[in-house]
Computed example of a mutant assay.
Amino acid sequence: MTIKDLIKIYETKKKKYGLQAYRHISNVLKEAKAQHKKDFTGNDHEQSWRAFKGKNLEKLIEYIITDEVRALGLQVVNGNILERTNGSNLSKELSLVKRNLIVDYGEFGSHLPDVDLIIYDLKTSKIVAVLSSKVTLRERIAQTGYWKIKLASDEATKHIKVYFVTPDEDGTLTIKTPTKKGRAIVEVDTDGSYVLSETDIEESDKVKMFDKFIDDLKKLLK
């Protein structure tokens, strides 16, 4: 089981559901898990699957959005590429992107925020938005809120939008009130969350279904 296999499963959903395919990401992951288990030869399949799912959900989201992002004159890069690649081995374009995302910790150095995907202007390398993605909010949402606060505290990075993309499998974002802690963090400490779920959610200015993402991205460019 690889990301290519995951994309194949997604493409079958896309043929069936069209523009609503994003709602079926959890089913894509369920089917992938069954195949992953068939291929697995070790002792702890659940641990192996969790690692695979965490790493490849972000790659699947990258695959889903890349064409439409590029059509806007923007580009997407995986955060791991910037984190793990020495600056001297990056292209000038990506080296500038990396510099434009750095968080300054004074005497403790400069560090990249933990984000999964970075969307930037192809001509200027100016960062428009960063995305974090996890199957549920509890795994990452407080950290995402922290990075929003850090980026907003510096003149050079305060314009960067910080979003969370999730299938929200535990239903944290489904209703506005009573508000669960994860949704409260999204509403107050991030620029918003986009949900890949079959379940309709009570939307707000900051919590929306995933099909609103590209339109919101377009608004940032005006």
Rank of each mutant, 00 (worst) to 15 (best):
T2K: 02
K4E: 15
D5E: 08
I7F: 01
K8E: 13
E11Y: 02
Y17P: 00
G18L: 01
L19T: 13
A21D: 04
R23Y: 10
H24C: 12
H24N: 14
V28C: 14
K30A: 13
K33F: 06
K33R: 15
Q35E: 09
H36F: 15
K38W: 07
K38G: 13
D39M: 11
F40Q: 03
T41F: 03
T41H: 07
G42R: 14
N43W: 07
N43M: 06
E46P: 05
E46S: 09
Q47A: 12
Q47Y: 12
S48H: 09
F52H: 02
F52D: 05
K53I: 06
E58F: 05
L60Y: 02
E62G: 08
T66P: 05
T66V: 04
D67N: 14
D67T: 06
A71H: 12
Q75G: 12
Q75V: 10
V76Q: 10
N78E: 13
G79F: 01
N80S: 11
I81G: 03
I81T: 13
I81W: 01
E83Q: 13
E83P: 00
R84L: 13
T85W: 09
G87N: 14
G87Q: 09
G87P: 13
G87H: 08
K92D: 15
V97L: 03
N100C: 15
V103A: 06
E107K: 14
S110R: 04
H111S: 08
P113L: 00
V115R: 05
L117C: 03
I118V: 14
I119A: 10
Y120V: 07
K123Q: 10
T124Y: 03
T124I: 02
S125I: 01
V130R: 05
S132G: 04
K134Y: 07
R138E: 15
E139P: 01
I141N: 09
I141D: 07
I141C: 08
Q143G: 12
Y146M: 13
W147P: 07
I149W: 13
S153V: 11
D154H: 11
D154C: 08
H159N: 14
H159Y: 10
H159D: 08
I160M: 05
V162I: 10
E169I: 04
L173M: 12
T179F: 00
K180P: 02
K181P: 09
K181D: 04
G182A: 12
A184S: 12
I185F: 01
E187I: 02
V188C: 04
T190F: 05
D191N: 13
G192K: 02
L196M: 15
S197R: 06
T199W: 09
T199G: 11
D200I: 06
I201F: 10
I201L: 15
E202R: 14
D205M: 10
K208E: 14
K208W: 14
K208Y: 15
D211I: 08
K212A: 14
K212R: 11
F213L: 15
F213T: 00
D215G: 07
D216S: 07
D216I: 04
K218G: 05
K222G: 12
